[in-house]
Write a protein that binds this DNA or RNA. Structure first.
Length: 418
DNA sequence: TCTGGGGTCCTAGGACCC
DNA sequence: TCTGGGGTCCTAGGACCC
């Protein structure tokens, strides 16, 4: 058996932990620059606020219904996520952290009564330790556990857990699961399926396997098998290394000057390189991309990207930054207003498995030592405590309704009023 | 006026090899 | 008229996830 623990309305729930007066009220959390809605409380969902909806389109509704609005506070959510994961890790033999708010639970080899016991207690335990409400789904495969977790979330069962144990329960859950709600079936595939009179997960499992394989490819066939109770998606306890690392941002204001852009790209690359070093890897390729505002019809669109191969794989921010300054000049065109940009590192490999370049003008050992020192300082004193001069002042997005970093900054620790 | 930021995997088609 | 059989690698584009 596999389980899935899924935090309910995660970002909103994090805000509520530190501001319990939000309980029972409509709350939303916004993306960077306060652009779109990315998390909604049940009350906000009931008001008809959609996922990904731009804030400016729902201003009136928010004022009228008194919706609490928060900028995204990723420092807080990341830390709360870790606390949830620790509690889960404590409670079951093994977990796979699937996303910031979800983890699969490996319950293989456990007997049914024990699984039931875990399922019943898990959400209470997470709630008690972290304040975050979760839903738990348990069944024979990861995909079925996903289905079960949806049932748990919808039915709001008192212990927050749904265990799809026998055939009968599974069938009934699949009949109530829309095809588009299946893990791995997105918008395109669900409309394709609907065209073939497949509307629910139950319809899908009754479709012929070879047809599924031909039309939905091998991944869709895997989903089909999983829904039929055959486990074929691996449980991965160790997070695998990233094959690609990206940092990109929409700028709060449009940028026209190259030196302003350079500061942003200096931030992008150093942020990427930090992630790269964190997983003890090096990269052999760096891509820069830059674009104007795609929503604005009055001004011309411009999109360009450039990719640079490195002679020697590296994890040094300094070396990467030199490539950035040259490349940026190549893709920059005067006369456009830029709205978004980013850096992607790829061709990633293990640093320990890479040999250096004997003739490199850089002393890679000294670079490594310097980068290591820099990372340590930023861990100890907080992200962005020390940056490369090229970044200028700290890169900011235009978030205006930010809550405090209650759990990661001593200055923001919560005050209790008596 | 105002529209996020990360990722992964698969396939088709072309270029090339023998 | 009829035109082999087996591969690899790369890229772009499209699908999916949170």
């Amino acid at each position: 058996m596999f389980g899935l623990a899924d935090c309910n309305n995660f970002y909103v729930s994090c805000e509520r932990v530190f501001n319990p007066s939000l309980e029972g009220k409509p709350v939303v959390v916004l993306s960077n620059n306060d652009g779109c809605v990315i998390s909604r409380s049940e009350e906000a969902k009931k008001l008809g606020i959609k996922m990904g909806e731009p804030l400016f389109k729902i201003r009136d509704l928010i004022n009228k219904e008194n919706v609490a609005v928060y900028s995204s506070n990723f420092a807080l959510y990341g830390d709360m996520s870790q606390r949830v994961m620790e509690t889960l890790r404590d409670a079951v033999p093994s977990i796979e952290v699937y996303s910031v708010d979800e983890a699969f639970l490996d319950l293989r080899g456990m007997n049914i009564p024990d699984i039931k016991k875990i399922g019943e207690k898990l959400s209470l335990r997470v709630r008690k330790n972290t304040g975050i409400p979760i839903s738990v789904g348990i069944s024979k495969t990861k995909t079925l556990a996903k289905v079960a977790a949806r049932v748990a979330k919808k039915t709001l069962s008192e212990n927050g857990c749904t265990f799809l144990q026998d055939e009968e329960m599974i069938i009934s859950a699949l009949k109530n699961c829309k095809a588009g709600d299946i893990w791995g079936i997105g918008r395109k595939l669900s409309s394709f399926l609907a065209g073939n009179r497949i509307f629910t997960a139950y319809d899908l499992i009754n479709a012929p396997g070879d047809w599924v394989k031909r039309r939905l490819t091998i991944t869709g066939h895997r989903t089909w098998r999983e829904l039929r109770g055959e486990s074929c998606i691996l449980f991965e306890e160790m997070p695998s290394e990233k094959k690609q690392i990206c940092t990109s941002r929409t700028f709060p204001l449009e940028i026209t000057q190259i030196d302003e852009l350079y500061k942003a790209f200096a931030f992008f690359v150093s942020n990427c390189a930090e992630k790269l070093r964190h997983q003890k890897s090096v990269c052999r390729e760096i891509v820069l991309f830059l674009l104007t505002n795609v929503y604005k019809e009055s001004s011309p669109d411009y999109y360009r990207s450039i990719s640079v191969q490195l002679e020697t794989p590296t994890d040094s921010t300094i070396e990467l930054m030199k490539k950035v300054s040259v490349s940026l000049e190549k893709i920059f065109r005067e006369g456009y207003s830029y709205k978004k940009g980013g850096v992607i590192l790829s061709e990633i490999s293990q640093k320990s498995e890479t040999s250096g370049d004997l003739f490199s003008p850089y002393d890679s050992h000294r670079h490594s030592t310097l980068m290591c020192c820099l990372d340590d300082i930023n861990v100890k004193y907080g992200k962005g405590s020390i940056v490369h001069a090229a970044q200028g002042e700290r890169f900011r997005t235009g978030s205006t309704r930010l809550s405090k970093r209650y759990t990661t900054d001593w200055a923001d620790i919560i005050t209790v009023k008596v």
